[in-house]
Amino acid sequence: MISSHFDDYDDLDEDRELLESIKGIGRVVGTTMLSVLRSCRFRNAGQVAAWLGVVPVEKTSGSSVRGLSRMSKTGPAAVRAKLYMAAVVASRWNPPVKAMYERLIARGKPNKVALGAVMRKLVHLCFGVLKTRKPWSENYAATA
């Protein structure tokens, strides 16, 4: 049913293809992110990341207790689960994301923390691709 719905609307199909141009984003994650990005009017990628709960939150309680930062985990857990698997794939096959992941691991960050950062990066990439209406290019940073 979802595929036939996308076939009926050309703009949805084009948006999904733009999202799937990002290495690590497949059909399922592309469709999911498209539904998230079209469900609300987000002004920037940070709002999307915060809504999905993939931003770090500092644990503080007064002046004496300071805990470790952790992912906020607000928003739909099913979307975060799909983003997690996309982050695993992107950290292996997407060269700029892989470089970021390896840089975090080299700085001593745990594996899950680095994957959380990759999840947030993928949300930002999805927002940017739909906003610019251009397919993702791994050489964008070198040419910009």
Rank of each mutant, 00 (worst) to 15 (best):
I2M: 10
S3H: 13
S3I: 13
S4W: 12
F6D: 11
D7A: 12
D8A: 13
D11Y: 14
L12G: 01
L12T: 02
E14Q: 10
D15S: 13
K23M: 11
G24C: 08
G26L: 06
R27I: 10
R27T: 11
V29L: 14
T31D: 12
T32I: 09
M33F: 02
L34W: 03
L34D: 04
S35M: 13
V36S: 03
V36I: 15
R38S: 14
R41N: 14
F42T: 03
R43D: 15
G46A: 11
Q47T: 04
W51H: 12
G53M: 03
V54W: 01
E58C: 07
K59E: 14
T60Q: 12
T60P: 02
G62D: 07
V65I: 15
S69P: 12
S72F: 05
T74C: 10
T74E: 06
P76R: 14
A77E: 13
V79M: 01
L83M: 06
L83A: 05
Y84L: 12
M85V: 08
A86V: 05
V89A: 15
V89D: 05
A90M: 00
P96T: 08
A99T: 12
R103G: 08
R103H: 06
R107Q: 13
R107H: 08
P110R: 12
K112Y: 11
K112H: 11
V113Q: 07
V113C: 06
A114F: 03
A117W: 00
R120N: 14
L122T: 03
V123G: 00
V123S: 03
V123A: 02
F127H: 04
F127D: 01
K131S: 14
K131M: 10
T132S: 15
T132H: 12
K134I: 10
K134P: 02
K134E: 15
P135H: 13
W136Y: 15
S137Q: 13
Y140D: 09
T143I: 15
T143M: 14
